[in-house]
Design a protein around this nucleic acid. Structure first.
Length: 396
RNA sequence: GGAGAGGUAGCGAAGUGGUCAAACGCAUCUGACUGUAAAUCAGACGGCUUACGCCUUCGAAGGUUCAAAUCCUUCCCUCUCCA
């Protein structure tokens, strides 16, 4: 095991806040594998680069000999979180949760070391709490303190609804820390409040759980990664994400489309590259390198190489990518509009007409201007919509 | 329980009987320019139709009217103040 100093150096890389550092040092001095908690809600099992910031940190802990306790928030996912206003997230069935949780794990273990990870489901203890337990839990915190949380305060000030049970979420998450006897909890800066609640609850429940917790969990917050738009945090609902299960070509393309400023941010949070050295590169070269690093991480170096070559082929030489999907259409010949809508390249016929009218559609490299044009499928045709959507179409 | 305000397209926000498929902003999409970047500029942005036009949309359901996002009734939901 590395020295305390070495461990601290690695642990602190990229971290926003470490609360409190002295306690972490004290824990590290005990020389045992620490229990590092990380919780996830399996309602949308799609991990993207934003999540990977925290996952990388967890992996670092594992590489230092510590253990990750991965809590799958299946209980909370089943209840549903109504933070949106019109679209109350519908509660998931146990089957859905189970399926999501499995998918989630597959993705998580692209980054985490399975051997050093303990996977637990929080329904195991949460579903056993009775009304009395819940009252006790709820009594630990006050409304004023709950409203300290940014998210709640904002909504409160903007006169947006906050449901009572949402106040329970931080408590429940904190209670998880009690159950799993966490030494450290890692999360995004948006989780700071919830994680701090965990600290307090661990102190409060010290006697009840009969666990000797010398010190409550240490909090470690990681920055929230901006999405490809460079402004808002990466999230699936904003459609500004790069998912780790996306194809190498997609990851490459999306990475290339981010702004130069954002690129440096990604380098900082997602790689271990020397930032000064990167700044010396031509921005385009640097961006291609970043894309390759990411693909190597989620796939392998070969795929990264392939994606880079494919990218060059398309955009430098005006060619097309190699792995284009092929759609099969029943008819031998059909109108370009129908073709676009049937292959889902356009969301509707009106949309298809718009695209053609704006010169955004080409077949076998030829731009189609006339929306009445028919496309014969006597052989495979290559359809291109916009700058980066390709589809091969052939007759069945 | 009482009083008041409000629910409009992905989001924010105008619109208070016909000229409303609904201004404007953001997001998105397409084109130009580029490094498939950003920024900028131009255009599009409910659906169906070659088109005239037709159909569906303004919390929900009914109703008034030649005509409703706009008026009436009931219901659902949110916020504020009082208790």
């Amino acid at each position: 095991m590395k020295s305390i100093e070495e461990q601290l150096k690695i642990i602190k890389r990229g971290v926003v806040e470490l609360i409190p550092e002295e306690e972490l040092i004290a824990k590290l001095k005990e020389g045992r594998p620490l229990r590092v908690k990380w919780g996830a809600d399996p309602s949308a099992p799609d991990i993207h680069l934003g999540h990977s910031v925290v996952l990388n940190k967890l992996r670092q802990f594992q590489d230092l000999g510590h253990k990750v306790i991965f809590i799958i928030g299946d209980f909370t996912a089943r209840i549903g979180d109504p933070s949106g206003k019109s679209e109350t997230r519908k509660p998931l069935t146990p089957q859905e949760v189970k399926k999501n949780a499995e998918t989630y794990q597959e993705q998580v273990f692209k980054i985490l070391d399975k051997k050093a990870t303990e996977v637990v489901y929080n329904h195991n203890w949460l579903s056993k709490l009775n009304m009395e337990d819940i009252f006790n839990l709820a009594a630990k915190y006050t409304v004023a303190r709950m409203l300290e949380r940014d998210d709640f305060m904002n909504r409160f000030e903007k006169e947006r609804p906050i449901s009572i049970h949402e106040f329970l979420y931080p408590l429940v998450q904190g209670y998880d820390s009690v159950e799993v006897k966490a030494d450290i909890e890692v999360g995004g800066t948006d989780q700071k409040f919830n994680m701090l609640v965990g600290r307090e609850l661990q102190r409060d429940y010290k006697d009840k759980t009969q666990v000797v917790i010398t010190m409550p969990q240490v909090i470690l917050t990681m920055p929230l990664l901006e999405g490809t738009d460079g402004v808002q945090k990466m999230s699936k609902s904003l459609n500004n994400y790069i998912g780790i299960t996306e194809s190498p070509a997609q990851i490459f393309g999306k990475t290339m489309s981010i702004s130069d400023d954002l690129m440096m941010r990604y380098y900082e949070l997602l790689t271990n590259e020397n930032l000064e050295a990167i700044k010396q590169l031509h921005p385009k070269e640097a961006k291609m390198k970043l894309a390759s690093i990411l693909i190597t991480k989620f796939y392998n170096a070969k795929e990264a190489q392939k994606a880079a070559e494919g990218f060059d082929a398309i955009f430098k030489q005006g060619g097309t990518p190699e792995d284009i999907e092929t759609a099969v259409v029943a008819k031998k010949e059909l109108n370009i509009i129908d073709l676009l809508s049937e292959t889902k390249l356009a969301s509707s016929k009106t949309d298809a007409k718009r695209l053609v009218g704006q010169g955004g559609v080409s077949v076998d490299g030829e731009v189609i201007k006339d929306e009445k044009q028919t496309v014969s499928l006597d052989r495979e045709r290559l359809i291109k919509v916009g700058k980066r959507r390709f589809l091969k179409v052939k007759n069945a």
